[in-house]
């Protein structure tokens, strides 16, 4: 028997992740949908009522709600990716040691990582898909085709966050560092990556910083698409940036998890 291909091995894990999903999807609906909906309501609708900026100042969005809606979708992709690759990974390495039972079978670490990332992407797909579908009737998206194209972009954003965080979590001794990811990573990114206001407002230095964050790359790409106003060069830069981050994160994850499990 030859070494199974990574994909065929990962497919053997579909049953495991399907059972996990069946058990957790209800809780996921609350956290992954209700929270962003509250943000949209509070910031977009109620606070946004006071914002009467010129569309030119809002990256071309006709209203403040239309400005933050794509940002919130991208934040959602990031949030799910990070939450699925922090505590769950620690649990599988340390608390329940599920990875050890997996590597006792013919599965390789690469196959295990691939399957878990597949699961993360399914979560991002459902969550962001529902989110886009619920926002659409409010008339916040200008382009139908662009909005449809924004969905696979959310998967790319999810992957760009999932793989580096997975790599980080795979080598940790305990979960205390996750607080740093949430407080010093996720929250500042959510606030300052062009989600609630254009990054031009940050001033030249901070704007340059914001431009290199993966979330801004994702937010800007999503916004261009749903507003139907795509700068193809920038779009290509965003895609390449996010894909490169995902690839480096993938490599690091397999390496660090292998070191952790096979020693």
């Amino acid at each position: 028997m030859a070494t199974p291909m990574p994909l065929s091995g990962a497919l053997r894990l579909v049953d495991y992740w399907a059972i996990v999903y069946k058990r957790t999807w209800k809780g996921g609906v609350i956290t992954s949908f209700v929270t962003p909906f509250f943000y949209i309501l509070a910031m977009g609708v109620l606070l946004g009522d006071f914002v009467t900026a010129d569309p030119a100042q809002l990256d071309g969005a006709p209203s403040y709600l239309a400005f933050i809606a794509p940002g919130m979708v991208a934040v959602q992709a990031m949030t799910i990716a990070i939450s699925e690759t922090t505590y769950p990974v620690m649990g599988m390495v340390k608390w329940q040691r599920i990875y050890y039972s997996m590597i006792a079978s013919p599965l390789s670490v690469g196959e295990i990582v691939l399957a878990q990332l597949g699961f993360v992407l399914v979560r991002v797909l459902f969550s962001c898909g529902v989110f886009l579908a619920v926002l659409a009737p409010f008339g916040v998206f200008e382009s139908v085709g662009g909005t449809l194209a924004a969905l696979p972009v959310q998967l790319l954003i999810g992957l760009a966050f999932a793989t580096p965080v997975f790599a980080f979590a795979a080598g940790l001794d305990n979960e205390s560092a996750f607080a740093l990811i949430f407080r010093l990573g996720m929250i500042p990114l959510t606030l300052f990556s062009g989600t609630f206001f254009p990054i031009g407002n940050l001033g030249p230095v901070l704007e340059a910083v914001a431009r290199v964050t993966p979330l801004w790359q994702g937010v800007d790409l999503t916004r261009m698409l749903v507003l139907g106003d795509v700068d193809w060069v920038w779009a290509a830069v965003h895609v390449v940036y996010l894909a490169a981050l995902a690839a480096v994160g993938w490599w690091l994850t397999v390496r660090r998890l292998t070191r952790r499990l096979v020693k």
Binding site: G9, L13, D15, Y16, I19, S101, M102, P106, L107
Partner: peptide, 9 residues
């Protein structure tokens, strides 16, 4: 048992 059997293909 089920998921483990599936790991073996």
């Amino acid at each position: 048992l089920y998921v483990y059997g599936r790991y073996f293909g």
